[in-house]
């Protein structure tokens, strides 16, 4: 017997048991993805929704081991895509709803802006995560400042003070570090930060680890990662275009600057 998975769901709704058998006695395994959580109902492992939104079920390829074991015949990943659709909701051009509460995790591809560079590392702020939109809204005291009067007497004073001290002029975004050895995968010892990134460049990078309390650790050591947007003369010049993996050019003037470029699509 198979249980139908609902198409639209709310937090707390059970979506499917982890294992289901279909008619020809093959077993289908479901794994929880974003917006779902594994929980137990009467000692049966069940995938529950944690968001309001549409359910997506995608097939996951079985690993060789699983094929060899023959215990499960198919594997699906259940995800819930947050749907904020109402008259006030924000949609991007494609009609995909932006989930602004998704945080970067290991392996995610992110777009970052370089804040400062040193001999050892480039400090960046994370602007967006690929496929899930901006990292966070312009929250708090931003363009449309929304002030609360009793902020300092919050229930968790320590936490607030950390936020206050940590804020910088460039915004409230999550920060990351690209270390010199993570810029490219070959000839690592010859890499120089200044020949790879400059402040204000926009870089496509991958999250290596969620890092420490301050920073995410990022890497650009694959072809498709590196600078995607940069302006010449430390940001004073014009937009440059990549001509190979380590040079960018300003078409009108012919200036060439060194960058670790991302492979264009």
């Amino acid at each position: 017997m198979t249980i139908d998975i609902p198409k639209y769901t709310f937090p707390g709704q059970p979506l499917s048991p982890v294992y289901q058998s279909s008619n020809n006695k093959s077993i289908i395994e479901y794994i929880p993805g974003n917006g779902t959580i594994l929980s137990k109902i009467n000692n049966i492992d069940v995938i529950n929704s944690t968001l309001l939104g549409n359910v997506k079920v995608n097939e996951v390829l079985l690993t060789d081991e699983e094929v060899a074991e023959k215990t499960i015949s198919q594997k699906f990943k259940i995800e819930v895509i947050n749907n904020k659709q109402n008259e006030y909701s924000e949609l991007n051009d494609n009609g995909i709803i932006i989930n602004n509460t998704y945080l970067p995790k290991e392996g995610d591809i992110v777009l970052v802006r370089v804040l400062k560079i040193s001999l050892k590392q480039a400090n960046v702020e994370i602007i967006a995560i690929e496929n899930s939109g901006n990292i966070s809204k312009e929250s708090g005291i931003g363009m449309n400042g929304y002030q609360q009067s009793n902020v300092t007497s919050g229930s968790n004073g320590q936490f607030l003070s950390i936020i206050n001290n940590g804020l910088n002029e460039s915004g409230e975004n999550f920060r990351g570090i690209i270390r010199v050895q993570d810029i490219r995968s070959t000839e690592k010892d010859k890499v120089k930060i200044v020949e790879s990134f400059k402040p204000n460049d926009i870089i496509r990078a991958k999250v290596l680890s969620i890092g420490d309390g301050q920073n995410y650790y990022l890497t650009t050591n694959e072809n498709e990662f590196g600078v995607v947007f940069a302006k010449s003369q430390n940001g004073n010049g014009q937009l440059m275009y990549p001509i190979d993996w380590q040079n960018m050019i300003v078409p009108s003037t012919g200036e060439i600057e060194l960058r670790k470029c991302a492979k264009p699509f």
């Binding site: 929250s139 975004n173 309390g213």
Partner: peptide, 24 residues
């Protein structure tokens, strides 16, 4: 009621998010 976050907390590494409630 308005919800802000999740947003970065700097300082020591925390595995879980911390919640913080204000009533005006």
């Amino acid at each position: 009621v308005s919800i802000y976050g999740p947003r970065p907390v700097r300082g020591t590494f925390t595995e879980k998010t911390s919640l913080d409630v204000h009533l005006d």
